[in-house]
């Protein structure tokens, strides 16, 4: 049984396996990462840190590439919703 940890996405608790990225946590929570400049919902595209579509606010810091950040227990993730 893989080790699980909990982060919050827009206030809701989400369980992810240890080593999972914040982008995975947001997708598990069925939350769009961000709204585009014209208001479209967006999620991760490239999975490797170059497209910047997965940006979200993590522990108060905005515009962080969530696919490159490993979840830490208690992390607070906020999207553009």
């Amino acid at each position: 049984m893989p080790e699980l940890l909990t982060v919050t996405v827009n206030g809701r608790s989400v369980a992810v396996r240890a080593g999972a990225t914040v982008a995975a946590a947001m997708m598990i929570a069925a939350c769009d990462c961000r709204k585009s400049v014209s208001g479209e919902p967006r999620g991760p595209l490239c999975g490797m840190g170059i497209c910047f579509e997965c940006r979200a606010m993590i522990d108060g810091i905005p515009h962080r590439r969530s696919c490159q950040i490993v979840c830490v227990s208690g992390m607070e993730i906020r999207t553009d919703e």
């Binding site: 997708m27 991760p44 490797m48 696919c67």
Partner: peptide, 21 residues
């Protein structure tokens, strides 16, 4: 193509490797 859950092929694989069921 900008809809959520449209991703690169490697992109989706990367997400699954990083915890997406």
């Amino acid at each position: 193509w900008t809809l959520p859950n449209v991703m690169g092929a490697g992109g989706l694989q990367a997400l699954v490797k990083c915890g997406l069921p």
